[in-house]
Nucleic acid binder design. Sequence first.
DNA 1: GTGTCATCTTGTCAATGGCAAGATAGGATC
DNA 2: GATCCTATCTTGCCATTGACAAGATGACAC
Lengths: 187, 187
Amino acid sequence: MTPTRGYHHGDLRRALLDAAVEAIGESGPAALSLRDLARRAGVSHAAPAHHFGDKAGLLTALAVQGFDLLAGTLRDAGDDLLAAGVAYVDFAVRHRAHFEVMFRPELYRAHDPEVRAASDRAGGVLRERVAGLPARDGGAGDPGRDALAAWAIVHGFATLWLAGALPPRVGDEPREAARHVISRLVE
Amino acid sequence: MTPTRGYHHGDLRRALLDAAVEAIGESGPAALSLRDLARRAGVSHAAPAHHFGDKAGLLTALAVQGFDLLAGTLRDAGDDLLAAGVAYVDFAVRHRAHFEVMFRPELYRAHDPEVRAASDRAGGVLRERVAGLPARDGGAGDPGRDALAAWAIVHGFATLWLAGALPPRVGDEPREAARHVISRLVE
DNA sequence: GTGTCATCTTGTCAATGGCAAGATAGGATC
DNA sequence: GATCCTATCTTGCCATTGACAAGATGACAC
């Protein structure tokens, strides 16, 4: 099941994206090298260009993949806002490479229509979950504000977790820690 | 007041850090080039190495500067947690280059003792402000959780703002928008 | 005036991104 | 089956970069 021999790779596009996830997981998106990905996939240094044009093209594809993964993850988490928030953090930790690229628009073509569409899909799910939240303190809440606050707290927690900025006492279980923090907002 | 002529620059270390802030503001930390900084400062391509060793060394110095700037900003914002939160977001927007480096530890030597010290100073101020927050809902609050939630929401908002991920209706005034969102947590 | 050392320059090397031109093969058409 | 067509991949090249080595310069102490 490894038809990588022969002139044609067979599934180079996917192989390069997988290699990119692996490489970014090791050293971050800044250190990503197209030639390294080519070596990992066993092809020549110019092969990636055909599928993605340039480095930004590859990262654009990765961002699209990431937003779609995120949309699916949020959908699977169910209707509960707290559960969606925990799933958001869990996504960032488990798909760290995707997450780190997605929210670094200077690395890819953020205005690409495919990216915008995928990003809108993920944002739509998040908004749905927030809309399901009961109005706070007897209906005085501003749904726009609630949505932003929810997004900010989960995104901030995920970002700080990935950056290794959180103090050790937070623990090493992102889902549990996230639930604890988010509950401060939605309790 | 521009003694950049002559063999010795006079204040190259500062000039390089300033140039780095400018360059990162234009294209992000990933696109930073030591040789570009040297050109901006009017020195040879190898001059930066003497002051910072390598690229990570320069970014380490920038991170230290950033954490100290942040600590000062938070201190100046006063005792109020809401004001400190707004100041945090404002810092991220006004010192974007510093902020983007500070929370990307793979770019510099995050374990450098100077970095840790500066980071601790900033974190200490933030914790002080959280400690000043009256216990939530009659004393049932967990101060550790409150601190994390506050940090996460302001950090998340700042990060999303810088990434350009927020919807247009949030407006273009970060301080105002931040105050509105943070008030959801501390009201 | 002399020596010392931080500062800065020139020269070089391997690695990278990107481009151009060519090789290969898979599949459609006849 | 022969031929063409096109997507896929390779080789070769160039400018740029980070890093290192060796040497030039000059500020400052004595």
